[in-house]
Amino acid sequence: GPMASDKRPRTAFTAEQLQRLKAEFQTNRYLTEQRRQSLAQELGLNESQIKIWFQNKRAK
């Protein structure tokens, strides 16, 4: 629909990254900035991508 703007492409996470994020989520529903930074480095992701993933996951 018209609401779907092309400005922010959805990140396609790899299965491996998703597995890691899910495991982290089961341990911590809320990430500290430090955890998020190390996860971002570990997974080669953007911190904001991880932050948003957690927000979306909590919203469900």
Rank of each mutant, 00 (worst) to 15 (best):
G1M: 03
G1Y: 05
G1K: 02
P2N: 15
P2Q: 15
P2E: 15
P2T: 05
M3Y: 01
M3W: 00
M3T: 15
M3E: 15
A4M: 05
A4V: 09
A4E: 15
A4S: 04
S5D: 15
S5M: 02
S5C: 15
D6A: 05
D6N: 04
D6F: 00
D6E: 06
K7H: 11
K7V: 14
K7A: 14
K7D: 15
K7Q: 14
R8Y: 15
R8L: 15
P9R: 05
P9G: 06
R10P: 14
R10L: 13
R10F: 14
R10M: 14
T11C: 14
T11G: 13
A12C: 13
A12S: 09
A12F: 12
F13V: 05
F13R: 02
F13K: 03
T14R: 04
T14M: 02
T14V: 02
A15E: 11
A15S: 09
A15N: 09
E16S: 08
E16Q: 10
E16H: 12
E16T: 07
E16R: 05
E16P: 05
Q17P: 00
Q17R: 02
Q17W: 01
Q17A: 05
L18S: 05
L18M: 07
L18R: 07
Q19M: 10
Q19E: 11
Q19G: 12
R20N: 03
L21S: 00
K22E: 14
K22F: 08
K22N: 13
K22L: 14
K22Q: 13
K22Y: 12
K22I: 12
A23S: 10
A23G: 05
E24C: 03
E24F: 03
E24D: 02
E24T: 02
E24W: 02
E24N: 01
F25Q: 02
F25V: 03
F25H: 02
Q26Y: 08
Q26I: 10
Q26S: 08
Q26L: 07
T27W: 06
T27I: 12
T27P: 01
T27S: 11
N28S: 08
N28G: 06
R29N: 14
R29S: 08
R29E: 12
R29G: 07
Y30V: 10
Y30M: 10
L31G: 02
L31W: 04
L31K: 01
L31V: 05
T32C: 06
T32G: 07
T32R: 03
T32P: 07
T32A: 04
E33P: 13
E33K: 14
E33D: 13
Q34G: 09
Q34P: 08
Q34C: 08
Q34T: 13
R35V: 06
R35K: 09
R36L: 14
R36F: 10
R36G: 14
Q37R: 12
Q37Y: 10
Q37I: 10
Q37D: 05
Q37E: 06
S38G: 09
S38C: 09
L39A: 00
L39T: 00
L39V: 03
A40I: 03
Q41E: 11
Q41L: 11
E42W: 03
E42Y: 04
E42L: 05
L43Y: 02
L43F: 03
L43D: 00
L43I: 06
G44Y: 04
G44A: 06
G44I: 03
L45E: 01
L45K: 02
L45Q: 01
N46S: 11
N46K: 07
N46E: 12
N46D: 13
E47Q: 06
E47R: 03
S48E: 14
S48D: 12
S48G: 10
S48Q: 13
Q49P: 02
Q49V: 14
I50Y: 01
I50Q: 00
K51M: 13
K51Y: 12
K51S: 12
I52A: 11
I52R: 10
I52H: 10
I52K: 14
W53S: 01
W53I: 02
W53T: 00
F54W: 09
Q55D: 12
N56L: 11
N56Y: 13
K57R: 10
K57M: 14
K57H: 09
K57P: 04
R58E: 08
R58M: 08
A59R: 15
A59T: 08
A59S: 12
A59C: 11
K60N: 07
K60Y: 04
K60F: 04
K60C: 14
